[in-house]
Each structure stands twice: as structure tokens, then as C-alpha cells.
Design a protein around this nucleic acid. Structure first.
Lengths: 204, 204
DNA sequence: TCACTATGTGTACTGGCTGTCCATTTGAAG
DNA sequence: CTTCAAATGGACAGCCAGTACACATAGTGA
């Protein structure tokens, strides 16, 4: 990579070209050195652009990092719909945990650390927080709730249940182990999570 | 407060006195301006101490913030033990949510934002992460697991269940709404959470 | 009581990042 | 071709991390 800042001298350059270069440079920094490395200074010099340009287009370095992450990594994770909510959930949550923990193309220890960094910075960067919610967490929550609604209509879930809570008890539990790592995050954990959420913990 | 840096001139000062002043200044900054305000520079000048001293005693500003937080806020939250796990859990989780969302003595919007800030910075500060786990999250997890074990021995929980998972599905779900606020964190939510975790979501 | 030493303090650096200027240069629209 | 919009290099003050050195003094043993 090393993204040699191909300096073209001064003057205006095509906007799309500049944005593309900046986002790629930001994604490179984010995936290789973590969120702390994504500063306006470093991204600008890596992309061969001026800091002024970045300040014009992105409200904070965190927001830039978030956009770079979502643009350069396809996290579709289609929701399977076989008609069996337990099987679908298990498959979905397992692949989610695998994505977080196992290595991908460009990260050693999985996307988990990058995602954790973004969520971490989001706690003190409102712009990043908004971007994260809009482009990542809210759509995913909606997708899960939609799947739950279909399952409830099929009679697989209790009628009176709050589906948003179910989302928190599955994905939120995973994020908990990602962000507050006092217990391991494994695929077996994901499987047990689904069963626990569906069957409950109380003795029959 | 305003903690006028009572300068005593140069020279050595009683260690305990210095530590006390530094921790109080750090807690003041943390509670009034948030985690971003807790820098070695600002804490040192607010406490009337030298930066050198802080560097000698704390590995990072985040670690200092964590110690200040845990030292100057009593978060006992004793686990009630009435023999009814559902009632105990509900009470416990409700007061937890209340602590996070309702205002306390010194914070406007509850301890939640401070805690979120600490967890956020912990994602990129290993020293803070370790301190947080040691002094906060791990002990609390252990306390909850112990309560679950007693309930299981009383026959209120299924025998084969993983108690760690139950912790994530209750407190982890709350942390999820605290850190990724796409859905509200309320006391009613806490109550529903307990029922959902105990009874399960699957149709009977 | 007194001298010694460990320890905190003031001061001053270097270097990185933020956020904001300016003057200059050039792509793109008319 | 002319004009305007936009990106560039460069510089700047301010804050912060992290380190260094000389000096003053609290706590300690003699």
C-alpha cells in the first residue's frame, strides 16, 4: 500500500477524485493502526490533500473514520429467512461474532477492534455518534426487528413481547463482551445466547 | 468549587495530601466537563500539582479518571436477596438504570454519560481498560453470577444454563442502550428485560 | 535534635494534533 | 477565452503528551 501521496501541485482537483483518495487513506489508517491514527493531519498527508479540504467535508476525524469504514467494508450480513427463527438467528449471530473475532482481509484480529474503537470514540464525538447510528446501528436494528415481526406473525414468538428488547439481548450482549471484555466472545456463546433468549432462564 | 490551586511553593509535600487533591480535582473535572477534560495538564493545574507527579503515579489520564471516579462515587448497589430472583433482579436492574439516567448529586443527566465516556476511552486506553475491569466490571459480574448461583440452587433457574450469558442479557443489554443509543433506556425497559430473560421469547 | 535522602515542584523543552488563516493555482462552467 | 469555484501549500496559535533538569522540602534514621 503505502499510498504515496502523489502530489499534483496546487490548484483545484476533481472533487470525486479527492474524496475517494481521502476515504481510502482514512480506511487504510483505520484498519492498520486503529482509530487513534485517523487524524485530519495524518489522513491529509497520506492522501496528498490539504487539511482545509477535510475540514470542509467532514465535521470531525471520527466522522471521517466512520464514513471510510462503512464505505470500504461491505457489511451486508443478509438476514437469512428460512422460516425457522431459531435457526436464522443462530446463523446470523454466529456470522456476526465470526466477523468480529476472526481475521478478515485487512485486519488481524477481526473487525471487532475497529468497531469497538468507533463506538468508543462515538462516546465523546457527537458527529461520529450520529453517523454510526444512521449508517450502521439503526438500520441493523430495524432489520432485526423486521425479522422478528415476521417470526411473530408466524407464531414463533410470543405476541406481547417487545422486539426491541430481544435485539438488545442478542446483539447487545455481544457488544457487551466486545466492549467490556470480562468474558470471551465466541460462536458457541452466540448459539447459547439465542437459545437462552428464546427459551428463558427460569425453571419450568 | 473552583478549587483554587493553593500553591505552596516548591518542595516536597505529603504524599497522601497530594494524591487526595489530585483525585478530587480529577473527579471534579470528570463529573463537570466529561472524560475529555481529564488531561494530565488540566488535572495538574487544577490540583496545584506538577505533571511529573501525575506521570509517576498514573499510567494514563484515563486510568487517573477511572480511579477518581471509583474513589469519589460509592456504587455499592448491594444485591438484594429476598429469595425471589425475579423480584431481586427487577429491583437491582431498575436502580441500575435509575443511577445511569437520573441525575445524581453532581451530574445533571445521571452517571450514564460519565460511565459511557470511561468505557469509550477504555477502547483505546489499555490501562483504563484494565482498571475498569478490575475495579468495576469484573466484581459486578461476579456479584451477579453469585446471585444467580444461589437462585439456581433454589431451583428458580434451569440447571444447564450459562449464568454468564444471563449477565450479558441483562446488564449488557442496558450498556448497549447506553453506548449505542438507538432505543431509550428506561426503568420499564429494565423490568421487561428481566421478564424476557427469565421467560424467553419463544411461543409456548 | 539534625542531617540526609526520597520525593514533589517549577520550568522548559520537543513533537503531534486541532482549528483557522492566507495567497496561489488550476479545474470547470459560462 | 474568461471567470469563478475549489483545492493546495504554508503558516500560525493553542492544547496536550511526555521528558528533562535543578531546586526545595517532608519524612526518616542517627
Amino acid at each position: 500500500m503505502s499510498e504515496t501521496a502523489q502530489r499534483r501541485g496546487r490548484g483545484r482537483r476533481p472533487a470525486g477524485e479527492v474524496r475517494e483518495g481521502v476515504l481510502r487513506a482514512a480506511a487504510d489508517l483505520l484498519l492498520s493502526e486503529g482509530i487513534k491514527a485517523v487524524t485530519f493531519d495524518r489522513v491529509a498527508s497520506a492522501a496528498g490533500s490539504s487539511k482545509m479540504t477535510l475540514y470542509k467535508w467532514w465535521p470531525s476525524a471520527g466522522a471521517l473514520a466512520a464514513e471510510a469504514y462503512f464505505a470500504h467494508s461491505e457489511h451486508q450480513l443478509e438476514f437469512p429467512d428460512t422460516g425457522d427463527i431459531r435457526a436464522d438467528l443462530t446463523a446470523q449471530l454466529r456470522s456476526f461474532v465470526r466477523l468480529l473475532t476472526h481475521e478478515g482481509e485487512r485486519t488481524r484480529e477481526g473487525t471487532g477492534s475497529v468497531l469497538a474503537g468507533l463506538i468508543g470514540v462515538a462516546q465523546t464525538d457527537p458527529e461520529l455518534s450520529a453517523a454510526f447510528s444512521e449508517h450502521y446501528s439503526a438500520p441493523r436494528r430495524a432489520l432485526a426487528v423486521a425479522a422478528f415481526e415476521k417470526a411473530r406473525d408466524r407464531g414463533q414468538l410470543r405476541a406481547g413481547i417487545d422486539l426491541g428488547i430481544l435485539v438488545d439481548q442478542l446483539w447487545g450482549a455481544c457488544y457487551n463482551r466486545l466492549l467490556i471484555p470480562d468474558a470471551p466472545l465466541t460462536e458457541d456463546y452466540a448459539v447459547a445466547l439465542v437459545n437462552n433468549a428464546l427459551d428463558g432462564a427460569a425453571a419450568r
